[in-house]
Design a protein around this nucleic acid. Sequence first.
DNA 1: GTAGTTGCAAAGTGTTTGCAGGCAG
DNA 2: CTGCCTGCAAACACTTTGCAACTAC
Lengths: 139, 139
Amino acid sequence: MMNEDRPPPSDIAQVLRAHGLAPTLQRLEIARVVFSRRRHLSAEQILAEVNASGRSSSKATVYNTLKALLRAGLVREVIVDPSRVFFDPNVSPHHHFYDTDRGELMDIEADAIRVDGLPEPPAGMVQDGIDIVIRVRRP
Amino acid sequence: MMNEDRPPPSDIAQVLRAHGLAPTLQRLEIARVVFSRRRHLSAEQILAEVNASGRSSSKATVYNTLKALLRAGLVREVIVDPSRVFFDPNVSPHHHFYDTDRGELMDIEADAIRVDGLPEPPAGMVQDGIDIVIRVRRP
DNA sequence: GTAGTTGCAAAGTGTTTGCAGGCAG
DNA sequence: CTGCCTGCAAACACTTTGCAACTAC
């Protein structure tokens, strides 16, 4: 089990700054939660973890920060459940298993998969990304 | 442009009955809207079209009916937009282009596509379906 | 200092629910 | 008749917004 993808706080600060985001205490904590291990959390879960950690934030700040991280390309939205958006700290191309019972996501590396026969986008449009979701459940 | 997939009202009634759903006027109208041509409408859009058609329904009935059609396997949910669920009258295996500018879905026939290298579902889980969404936009 | 950030509470969305009255079979 | 269906309005869960107070630089 690797665990090399949690940037130390100082790095997070630098990354935020590099994207024009002031590294406030709240943002650092939110980013720490989002980037700690490769998890897929909803805004609610992130808020809960941040508040459980002592350094708390408001709902508004969590949503603001997540939108900012999104704009900066530091996280990605994963849309698999109508009732909540998941934020994925892994921004390299990859896909997901979605455990419909538990509401949990698992990564599938993109280079494991080959897709053939993808049609061209409709005239006048360009491709903006492919999302493959494999829904799984207990038998 | 084919247009052979709008079952005449009498057929709709039979289909509903075959799935244990009483073919009430509201359900017939909702089903007519959903099944007319291969479109992907949100519950809201369906409600609007039903009400525009003279025979109106309430929000609750539209949602109830859509859930019933879903349970009966007569429509499928497509989840691509955090703000609304689309209902797809095409229940055979297929995928979608999603026009992120307009919020519109277009079908991609499944047999046009070949996916290789799909990993096995995690231990103890079975695959429940694959959704491939190609997000497209104007350049 | 000042522009950017936070937090609260209120407003907004899409969806769900409780329940009284209504209709199909 | 009787149980399933409908519709209204209120409740819900998640997300967004308005705005005054605050803080990083």
